[in-house]
Design a protein around this nucleic acid. Sequence first.
DNA 1: GTATCTGCAAAACATTTGCAATTCT
DNA 2: AGAATTGCAAATGTTTTGCAGATAC
Lengths: 133, 133
Amino acid sequence: MNIPNYLTENEIKPSYQRIKIFEYLYQEMNHPTVDLIYKMLAPEIPTLSKTTVYNTLKLFVDKGITSTVTIENNEVRYDAIVEHHGHFKCNVCGKIVDIPLDFEKLNLNELQDVSIEKTHVHLIGKCNKCLTK
Amino acid sequence: MNIPNYLTENEIKPSYQRIKIFEYLYQEMNHPTVDLIYKMLAPEIPTLSKTTVYNTLKLFVDKGITSTVTIENNEVRYDAIVEHHGHFKCNVCGKIVDIPLDFEKLNLNELQDVSIEKTHVHLIGKCNKCLTK
DNA sequence: GTATCTGCAAAACATTTGCAATTCT
DNA sequence: AGAATTGCAAATGTTTTGCAGATAC
């Protein structure tokens, strides 16, 4: 993926900070918090501020190239995947993985008269590695 | 439901504040935030503090008689229902309703090697009332 | 009388806002 | 130069913590 082009295609001017932040999101796929992004990129971009990380992620979400993940209280995380999917979080090692979901099979008869615009599915448990330790 | 007995059965000493807070949760079923609980009960319990609401809800969650609901960022909500279920939130009127879910029908083949302990399903859209306005 | 519970005040975080400095074209 | 972007500092809002006073058994 050519990140500057991808940003431009989505009406985002590809500044140095924006390129680096999206690159981090897209390459790591680790559902980072603002704080983690800041800590990881600060050595490389010494003048970086958290405000810019906040501004940039807000812009990415508004332009539809990033989604937010709120699994647990007071930590918003960010994901370069925007298609409908779920998340599994291991409560031992903290790793979060994306999971495909077949929403049509969910029994939602009770909700026939509503319109559903967003679906968040978060599963919490122990991952394979932590189970076999 | 006899709330003092229910608290005692769950190893929670039934103080006046605890009874009132659980009563509110159980009767209203409105998935309130700490702030809302505080605002609703403060007139009735003039000395009530938010710290006590926080302490009490933490105790309820620890003892397993209350669950937390984090649908959107920076607002933790509380629910007197602790069994597996989902939530639908209307993004117009803000109402949150509990929904039964048939998790077995979810296609989770990708997760065969993990153990799942908690399942959060949050749907966001427009409720019947707000759709027909 | 000793444990526990409550609630004030302050601290700790995450996030937002106002605005001035910087950068880009 | 002019417009957009960045980043500092302060404000906001939520939750946690330390501790002293109140309450319960």
